[in-house]
């Protein structure tokens, strides 16, 4: 009983929002066409799952997300590590990342579409570009901050260059790498939805624009609910992985 009460207090803000929403519907402050009740939205969301609409589109989006994200990780982590080891590479690459960091890179997307077409290639490239920044920068700063003492201790115990790299530098940089990955994955999902909304023939973003063309607000909201759920689960996934592999932090 006490536990349930505590739960209610803790989540009261969400409950208030739901109550306020349903009140607007109930008192018909907004026309129902524009402001459907949440129960209706959930029913439609469920329909989207059972009719296979979700299964048609979600895998395509997830494929783009993970392809772009994985590419960025595979390129970004070694690049960040090498930048911290090699002054020449750092001098060449650092200015590009410093200049590119504050600019809204998605503005390049329409040009990418021109070059690569509206399919997955342009979207994966965009996701890759966007994820590269947090991954490289966090890896780089993390590995420059690895204490000299760790490296000296390893050398002192007779570790050679590759052993120092694989057994000391990499694990010591791991928490920072994860910080980068944790920023990158939600970003990948956002960019996937965004680019699919700008132009696509499949994917969750496409489903959303397709539904909004129907002018049925409950269908659009159902899509948003599903996208929210996926975003939330992706977040959870990366947290689980982090807890498993960076347990010492």
């Amino acid at each position: 009983m006490k536990k349930g009460w505590k739960f209610l207090i803790e989540y009261q803000s969400l409950i208030w929002i739901v109550v306020a929403w349903e009140l607007v519907v109930f008192l018909q402050i907004m026309p129902e066409r524009l402001f459907p009740s949440l129960s209706k939205v959930l029913v439609v969301a469920f329909e989207l799952i059972t009719t296979g609409m979700l299964l048609e589109n979600l895998p395509i989006t997830l494929f783009r997300v993970f392809a772009g994200f994985a590419l960025a990780a595979v390129v970004g982590v070694p690049l960040g590590l090498l930048m911290s080891r090699s002054k020449l590479l750092n001098d060449l690459v650092q200015p590009i990342f410093s200049l590119g960091f504050p600019i809204p890179r998605v503005a390049l997307y329409p040009i990418l579409v021109f070059i690569l077409g509206l399919g997955s290639a342009s979207k994966i490239t965009m996701i890759f570009l966007e994820c590269l920044f947090p991954i490289v920068l966090n890896t780089y700063y993390g590995s420059t901050r690895v204490g000299k003492l760790y490296l000296w201790a390893a050398q002192n115990m007779g570790a050679n260059r590759s052993q120092v790299f694989w057994r000391v530098l990499l694990p010591a940089t791991m928490p920072s790498i994860f910080t980068g990955l944790k920023i990158a994955l939600p970003m990948a999902f956002i960019i996937a939805i965004l680019t699919e909304m700008i132009g696509a023939t499949a994917g969750m973003g496409y489903l959303l624009t397709y539904m909004s063309a129907s002018l049925m607000q409950e269908k659009v909201l159902a899509c948003v609910v599903l996208i929210t759920l996926v975003g939330y689960l992706l977040n959870l996934l990366i947290q689980k992985i982090q807890r498993k592999y960076v347990f010492w932090q």
Binding site: E10, Y11, S13, L14, I17, P186, F189, I190, I193, L194, M197, G205, L208, T209, M211, S212, Q217, V220, L221, C223, V224, I227, T228, G231, Y232, L234, N235
Partner: peptide
């Protein structure tokens, strides 16, 4: 505010545009 942040923060807000 915590639950609102937990739920809304990971949502791609661009999805709210049609609404």
């Amino acid at each position: 505010f915590q639950p609102i942040v937990d739920v809304l923060n990971p949502v791609p807000k661009i999805a709210l545009l049609p609404i």
